[in-house]
Write a protein that binds this DNA or RNA. Structure first.
Lengths: 238, 238
DNA sequence: CGAGGTCTTGAAGACGATCAACAAACGTGG
DNA sequence: CCACGTTTGTTGATCGTCTTCAAGACCTCG
């Protein structure tokens, strides 16, 4: 049920059979959320954390003028709010961009794990640290890259993250998000997203039709993004 | 020696006398770093983490075109690279913006703590989660706020963080950073920083002369920033 | 087939970048 | 304590990226 999480943790460090069992048992039930519904609302104090088993979701914040900024995208195997275990009050919402299947992990389980399994605790902590590393890279992209470079960067990142959980086919991935959502992620207007995407297409870097995005020229895309995958920390860490 | 850290952790959750002793003992030595020198370099795999005891420092990344983006500012009591304990390889550098005094905490100590003191582990984890929360807020500010709002927001944040460690005097704080560094933090040009700061001054919101910044109109500044301090998670969490 | 969402295009305008020059402040050594 | 060089702050002019507004094309799904 939570294979994606187990394999994700194991990519970063070894798990004993016991630990593997503990993690699998931590998902006490599954919840389905419709597209465009909140998985967690801002201001809530969840008593459980949500693990992505299927679909795409986004952490976001809405300002008083109605503008939305997405601060993270989540796919299979990602915890959307592991931090709420310790941070208590949600300072942002999480919305399902597509229909999502969510594994529910009660905070009581997490507390028990952190009391008894130091190795597992470190791996869960590591998971939230990688979220932080991605946030930092996004900050760099927002602050100092062009809209085109930023967009290319995000595409590179999403591809590697999806590849790590076996959700790519060759150079293609399923990317079920709209250009408006992409704009809220990149911090630019929908219109400009459209122009940037067309530029990426006309440079022969990507094909994106419907939900299928294909990277036609990896080197070119990586160069446009100045992409260095170190920050995703895909190898063994512990 | 590491009182600031102890009191910072205790703001978020209770520590036993033993735990307090363990944390204090974790700082095995003190290191001084000159202004404009790196505390940690990108690409390194540190075997110890650095705790700020004095001064201001910044996490940053430099792109190939020479543009720099600062992704975090650190003050007294902040760990600049606690994440390197688990993330191993630094995906960014940390530079001293002023002369800094650094408390050195070996990763061996952290490992021992995480093996034996679950409560302390959770508080350290929480510390890195707050870093992440601040990153998210910065993403929102970069993506969706005007340069003026963004600047006002950062000033509000820094004031509260400095206040939490007793480094404010009334409505004033010591802010020893240049407008160029502020630009690298906000993701805007130095020239534009200057114009924004002058606008904040002319609106009667702040006074900033030399290193001393005074907030002359808190409500006005907060309104300009649309500042909501929830994300700094200053209260008790555990 | 119709309706709503999504994508695309054009035109005008705003915000912030860049370039260039100068003023002010600071630190250092004489 | 002053002179000097360097860093930091300030100002103006011009330019470019991205935004906003508006409208039309396309697609998907009931």
């Amino acid at each position: 049920m939570s294979q994606a999480l187990v394999s994700k943790l194991e990519q970063r460090g070894p798990l004993s059979a016991e630990e593997r069992g503990v993690i699998e048992a931590a998902v006490v039930r599954v919840r389905d959320v419709n597209a465009d519904e909140d998985i967690v609302r801002e201001g809530e104090c969840p008593t459980e954390s949500s693990l992505m088993l299927e679909g795409f979701s986004a952490r976001y914040k809405i300002l008083s003028n109605g503008r939305r900024q997405i601060t993270a995208l989540h796919v299979l195997g990602d915890f959307v709010d592991l931090h709420s275990f310790l941070l208590k009050k949600m300072d942002h919402g999480v919305v399902a961009l597509t229909p999502c299947r969510i594994g529910v992990v009660p905070h009581d389980e997490l507390r028990a794990i952190t009391d008894r399994y130091p190795n597992l605790t470190r791996l869960l902590w590591l998971n939230t640290l990688i979220d932080g590393a991605i946030h930092r890279e996004w900050l760099v992209a927002m602050g100092r890259r062009s809209a085109l470079g930023h967009t290319a960067h995000l595409i590179c990142e999403l591809f590697l993250r999806l590849e790590a959980v076996g959700r790519t086919q060759g150079n293609s991935m399923n990317l079920p998000i709209t250009q408006a959502e992409l704009g809220d992620t990149l911090g630019i207007s929908t219109v400009h997203v459209n122009r940037v995407v067309q530029e990426l297409r006309s440079q022969g870097l990507i094909t994106w039709r419907g939900e299928k995005l294909t990277i036609d020229n990896w080197d070119g895309l990586r160069a446009a993004a100045e992409f260095d995958p170190t920050y995703i920390h895909l190898g063994r860490q512990v």
